[in-house]
Design a protein around this nucleic acid. Sequence first.
DNA 1: TATTGTTATACTCTATAACTATA
DNA 2: TATAGTTATAGAGTATAACAATA
Lengths: 148, 148
Amino acid sequence: MSDVKGAAALRATIVFNLGTLGALASDRFADRVEELGLKPKHAGLLAALDAGSAASQQELATRLGVAPSLIVALADQLQELGAVERVRDPEDRRRQVLTLTAEGRRLLARCAEAAEAADAELTAGLTEPQRTALTRGLRTLGEQHVPR
Amino acid sequence: MSDVKGAAALRATIVFNLGTLGALASDRFADRVEELGLKPKHAGLLAALDAGSAASQQELATRLGVAPSLIVALADQLQELGAVERVRDPEDRRRQVLTLTAEGRRLLARCAEAAEAADAELTAGLTEPQRTALTRGLRTLGEQHVPR
DNA sequence: TATTGTTATACTCTATAACTATA
DNA sequence: TATAGTTATAGAGTATAACAATA
């Protein structure tokens, strides 16, 4: 503690390792969903729709922590794939309500499988208790910091 | 297992949570090192130099998993800050050997402090055993997948 | 001819800001 | 006038490819 902090101190932090491993994990996941025509953000949007059901695009932007204009682009692409439908809210015709189609649910399921396969690859070197502990720790952090 | 996988299955994976939390962690860390004139990649480069001491820019590109041209840009900026020096290798004059200056070590120490502060904030809601388990899990994964 | 570092260029991602329709 | 969504534009970040110097 008394000496000057160097590389070892930085590498010991959760934040530093989360950053580097997060980039790695996203790349691995992206590789696997690419053949579905999707990127990680599309999967996040599908998951948000499945979990929270109908939501306006503005609400989704807040939940995913991105600009509303990005939701438009993601939704456009998902609509082209037949994964979501845009329905005007009759009570407020400015609003577009996004809903998952059967195809959207199918794609989400395949995203989940892709993530599970990437998990298996990434954590092949961990013992089962280590994997469980890591899963729990990340879920706890996510519940506390990622809006749902 | 028999029913169709949905948002819950995706959110249960390590890869998905690593991706979202990694982006969050990088943002928090970036906020803190911004006043030093640095971004997370600069910190990664400083740490690589401190840990492996002198290395050619090509080697660093491989270690950090980025294109050699990006090392040039990062090194340019660090050199302007007085954090690194470029010295021609006399044995192979094509090579530029990057070395940390005293200022570079000072900046690295401040990066480590920034990461520790971000850690404290991010993990405030975890118990001490949870934090320890998470730290260990991430370090193990990092050692297995991040080239050093 | 092969390799290191550099420069030039282009592409991807995403945010900001302007615009349209509706309230 | 304010708000939801959209479109247009711009910027950051990074990779690819061409280039120069050295081997």
